[in-house]
Each structure stands twice: as C-alpha cells, then as structure tokens.
Design a binder for these strands. Structure first.
Lengths: 149, 149
DNA sequence: ATGACTGCAAACTGTTTGCAGTTAA
DNA sequence: TTAACTGCAAACAGTTTGCAGTCAT
C-alpha cells in the first residue's frame, strides 16, 4: 500500500449541544455521570468515574455507573476504549481526534486525527466490498519524557 | 492530515523459522499449544484453543493454556486481539497483514496492510516525540454478503 | 537430582442481574 | 399513580494463583 504524504493534526475539541437522551428518565445519578464524562477531557475508567461521582453525591452505586455507561454507549454518546493493558476507559464522543498514541511507560495519551482514515475507508470499501462503519487507530510507544530517562 | 493515495494489500503470510523460546522448558503442553497457534490461520480464543488442545492430548489444563499464552505474548510470538464484542483472540505474529476489517453482522475478518502505517509512524515520531512501538488499525463494518441480505 | 513445570481447586476481578424499595413523570 | 429507575447483595465469566506432585534437563 502506498500512502505518499500525510500530515498530522493533534487536537482536542469539545461539543456544546443540548440535553441528550438519558434513557427515559433523567435521574440525578444519570445526570451526574453524564456531566462528569462530559466535562472531563480524560479517558475515565469505571472505577475513577464511580469515585468522582461519589465525591459529588454519595447516592450513586457502582451498578448504576455500569448501567448508565451502557446506556450512553447505546446512544452513541460515549466511546469505549480498550487499551493494551486491558483497561477500559470511556470518553465523550468527539467529532475529531479519535485516535490515540499511548506511552507504554507512563500512560500518557496524545490524540490525533489523520486523513489516512478516509483514504483507508474508501480503499477498503472499494477492494473488500465492506461498508465501513468505524476506523480505529491505536499507536503505542514511549513518550519523549520517558525516553529521556 | 493529508494522505494523497494509498493502496491496499490483502494478504496472509506464514513464517517458517526455527524452534522458539518457550520459557525454559519445552514441555509437551507448551509445544502442543504453540503448534496449534502456529498452524492455525484463524484467530483463536482461549476456549477454542483449549478445546483443540484437548482433542489432541487430554493432558492439558486451562491454566496451562493461559500460562502459555502469557509466555508467548511476553516473547512476542503471538498477538492478542480484542474485538468490539470483547472477545480476546490470539494469533501467530505476522510480519504483514496486521490489521483487520471485521463484519459487525457475521464476524468475518479480512486482514490487510497499508503503507499508512509507516507514514503515520514517521509523522507521529516527528510531531509528538514518541518512539512508536506498534500501530494497530481496526476497521469495523458490514461485509458484502451481509449487505446483500 | 532438582527446580521449572503442571493440574486442580480455590481465589480474584470486573461486570451483570434479581429483587424490593424509590422516584421522575 | 406507576413503571422506570436505584442500591444492594448475590451471581457470573474470564482469568490468576497456591500448592503438592510431575517431568525435562
């Protein structure tokens, strides 16, 4: 495969739209979990999300966190990321900056997007007959800080 | 990011090198598990691998399968793949065809490789200071068969 | 001979579920 | 009012571990 020249956009963005679908009832717990995910720029795992939620309002259970995440995934409001160390994290869905470079030493994550994605999409659709729904690129390595040490 | 033109190689290949490092002792069980993984062109999950192993020689336990997989991962002889449905599969490490397109309906998997990988590598190293160790591209969609139905 | 392995059963981790009580609509 | 929710504890699946015995070297 030939891919003459690419450029890299390292970005982070945030949408700011209206109240979303939170199941049929917007309960205190669901709003809380939703807000934490929405306002956080990091990837949160279930445990962290749960702790953050309890810090604000102790009337949240772990099961509700799981149930709400499932809901948000179904509604395509959050993305689930599975890292190499098997940690599962969640982040508010972004319109760009989908892809990740992760430092295997310190865990630092840099996001980027690339036109490769569309090209790949087009080529794959043409050559395999697949209708492409999603492209995910995960890069792992060692960041400059960790390399220095 | 700009990525003017790419082409797609859909391939499968097989290495044929000498006896590998299987921990410190090449036991019957380890050789068996190694051989099954090596000779299989599919991605095997733990359960399938275990069943295949028992069909050949019943003196293998599930724990040994887990322990041997861990060993092979450490030695970089097999790759672990986590699919969207959370199934974990293992395959003999390949020198090409690392990437996957997966049909969300029937589970069919097509492998491919792309020069995007190297370009991405170079760009990311230049722009983020990371030393890139691995690039993984996972595509999901619907295959031609399933689209027809 | 001996310490790197193995099988077994028990432990563990992350996630899901049934149920009785609670609460948003 | 009432059915969609919640918290709790118990169940669950996949994986890991301690231990006593086995086997490759």
């Amino acid at each position: 495969m030939d891919c003459p020249d690419i450029q890299l956009d390292i970005k982070s963005d945030q949408r700011d739209d209206a109240v979303p679908v939170l199941g049929q009832r917007a309960t205190r717990q669901r709003r809380l979990i939703y807000d934490i995910l929405r306002s956080s720029n990091e990837h949160l795992d279930v445990e962290t999300l749960y702790r953050k939620a309890r810090d604000i309002d102790s009337r949240v259970s772990l099961s509700t966190v799981y149930r709400t995440i499932a809901l948000l995934k179904e509604s395509h409001l959050v993305d689930e990321l599975i890292f190499e160390d098997d940690r599962r994290c969640y982040e508010f869905k972004k319109t760009s900056g989908h892809h990740h470079v992760r430092c295997q030493s310190c865990g630092r994550i840099v996001e980027f997007e690339t036109s490769c994605e569309e090209r790949l999409r087009d080529r794959l659709e043409a050559q395999t007959g697949f209708e492409v729904e999603s492209v995910r690129i995960d890069v792992a390595g060692y960041c400059s800080n960790c390399r220095a040490r």
